[in-house]
Amino acid sequence: MASELIVNGRPHRLPDDPRVSLLDYLRHDLGLTGTKKGCDHGQCGACTVIVNGLRINSCLSLAVMHDGDQITTIEGLGTPEAPSPLQRAFLAHDGFQCGYCTPGQICSATAMLDEIANGWPSDASASLEGRFEPTGEEIRERMSGNLCRCGAYANIVAAIADVATESDA
């Protein structure tokens, strides 16, 4: 059995205590504090990271369950010098106020754009088949696992829509 997981391309040893959530492991053991602890119960989405290409709540997962998994956190998506397209769009559209939910929003939106590109339907989709357009309604439904208590939703949706239509072209 592998006893390590890969975070942003680098291998790390699994914790000895099985109680450590993936979220606490990233923040406390690895010092990757970009991933945020909001509710710690899977309700707010601030802890969203991408595991093997899928977005998940890192608070509702034990680190030891992820041996061999590939984890991408906000630190792995871009840097201040070379931000990802979504990071740039959140800045351009002012998609935040306090910024606490932002890493989770951006990790979530990064995976969400892949889901749309891969033809995954959502509860907001009129049909279960075909191509799904990144409309405001679709983005809101698909991002409903990420709360923003400052209420910057209008700008968050605008930032995501901007990148969605960009990558569409």
């Binding site: 899977g42 977005r55 997962s61 979530s108 889901e115 339907p121 279960l128």
Partner: peptide, 23 residues
């Protein structure tokens, strides 16, 4: 599931969030 059992796809998509459904 989408083609033959759409009621199941719809019910699942109506629950939780994408992050939770992925796990």
């Amino acid at each position: 599931v989408r083609r033959d059992y759409p009621v199941l796809a719809r019910a699942i998509l109506a629950g939780a969030t994408q992050q939770l459904r992925n796990r």
